[in-house]
Design a protein around this nucleic acid. Sequence first.
DNA 1: TCCACTTAGTTAAACGATTAACTAAACAGT
DNA 2: ACTGTTTAGTTAATCGTTTAACTAAGTGGA
Lengths: 339, 339
Amino acid sequence: MPPTIKDVAKKAGVSTATVSLVIHDEKRISPLTKRRVRKAIQELNYRPSRAARGLVTRRTQNIGYVLTEDHFRRTEPFYTNIFLGTEFEAREHDFYILVNTIPTEFSGQDCLPRFVKENNVDGIIIAGKVPLKLLECLEPYHLPIVFVDYYPPFGEHSAVLIDNLAGGRLATEELIRNGHKKIGFIAADMEHPSIFDRSQGYRMALEKNGIAYSTDQIITCKGIPDRESGYKCAQALHEKAPQISALFACNDAMAIGALKFFREAGVNVPDDISIIGFDDVTADLYSRPPLSSIRVQKEEMGVEAVRTITELINSKDQRPKKIVVPVELVLRESIKKIN
Amino acid sequence: MPPTIKDVAKKAGVSTATVSLVIHDEKRISPLTKRRVRKAIQELNYRPSRAARGLVTRRTQNIGYVLTEDHFRRTEPFYTNIFLGTEFEAREHDFYILVNTIPTEFSGQDCLPRFVKENNVDGIIIAGKVPLKLLECLEPYHLPIVFVDYYPPFGEHSAVLIDNLAGGRLATEELIRNGHKKIGFIAADMEHPSIFDRSQGYRMALEKNGIAYSTDQIITCKGIPDRESGYKCAQALHEKAPQISALFACNDAMAIGALKFFREAGVNVPDDISIIGFDDVTADLYSRPPLSSIRVQKEEMGVEAVRTITELINSKDQRPKKIVVPVELVLRESIKKIN
DNA sequence: TCCACTTAGTTAAACGATTAACTAAACAGT
DNA sequence: ACTGTTTAGTTAATCGTTTAACTAAGTGGA
């Protein structure tokens, strides 16, 4: 059996209360006593029991990480990397992360994450777009919530977001700098704020450079922005606007799908068409040709999410806070200069 | 505040002990009382506090999931899918999964998973190959352990393993069935039992079909079996044994790397060389050409791991138990029949 | 000397479950 | 009628912390 606070108290010759006060570094304990107690803790390799502590403080020291099942299963390890970041940062704050996927078609109470129903978390991180119904069902629990890479259309919330607008501009401007004027755009799920902002960055970049923005060079579709939809959108765009010399895909998954389409259609990348994606998932490196993209610091987003949620948990100040993480251009071989 | 057992007791007009006994479905409570208590539980939406329960039962109802950092970061979501399986099954057994990555170069005590040091798990699942030093450091904690897709060279342990031998045979026999006789093999980290078994399956298939097994057609390297090592091994094999008409790669990551090499070397797959991998990660679908592989039920492995560890946790019978999950051939376009 | 304050602790109740030990009532057998 | 057993609960201790309230000793000022 692991040692308890009593063992420490006995060894140090003080009461258990004193040990507890030392652990919390209260000033009313003399430095000398503190040293004695700390030594005893060391020697016994004592760690306070989370259960006992949780019972009296009414805190679980757990954070929930919620995402839809298909986000988790997706080939590109985007949300998985964010998760890894949360796990690292959680250690610093003495929290554990509990993961729970929810079905993509969320249907009320039953689908609520287990740790919510069981009151087993002090706050939750919601990664990626989730059904609004989930947020409704979450309401009555009054848990602090931080969104990551998504922001619901109603209400005021804390969130860690990508600078999608800047990223969209950066990507488009890079194509323009390489001489491209006929630049297509493909996307899925334009209701997703992140995707929408990327399209706005695309638009701003065009207009700022005196290039007309036109829906003739855009193909969007419903559903999730994965490789398959990238393939289909590229195909549709190729028929609709064969004249384009460059393409901005709303994310790498779609860009990789587009790459596949062009390869099959005998359109050479980058000789015939330049392509840039968004997210910089590692799969880019092994696509043919390696894909230029907009890098997002995924682990860093996880870190910020944990910082934000712990602040929310630890203070009574519940004002929502938004953090926008910067993006960065990553050039590989999928873009070619034209005159 | 969530309702406590006292609230339920009061509402149902019984003692808290009775409520507890009802929750555990003890036979000494009459059906009538049980119904009354259950109704109260329902109406109050009561859930026992894990902290309080854990304090008296000395159980955390948590399971640790340990893997090295690079396994987690790897592009192929192999261990991530296993994790998803554990999460699903954990719900059935009322456990939570706590994830902890360990550094790939493990250096003793400090690197031990946090939940181990803090006694915050009842057992752990170790996924993939881990440093032996970790196992040493884990020893004194006497935690039930289940290995997944790895088996340490010393001692007797419980494990959930892939049928690598059968898979290696299946892959090689498929190449043979397509008329291939000069079949190469590439692998990294042959000390890994899974990789070694795959090579043995390859050997068995050859010998069973009267084809000489020869190291002339094999290239192995140190390090992890990733795309990069696949590229290099394919390159080395191409120089050493240009005559081969087919290649079995020890996993898909290496197969994809090999694909890249052959593409660059102007060797057409499958016209000039047929390739088969192992694991069936989703990236296969988007490789060019789509890769034939040996499918492994990853989520199922996670499920079995949780079943095994909970059995270990709940019973005094600590006899190690091994589960071998079957594999299955998946044919895509990377194999061509020759005469 | 007396009182008020500060310092450095201690005492004991509480958190919310579980469970061993107990009890009261009903029943059975002789 | 008495004893023993079964049934259906209850009582109370316990798990390992935290923390409000208390205390005893020392300090300082008038």
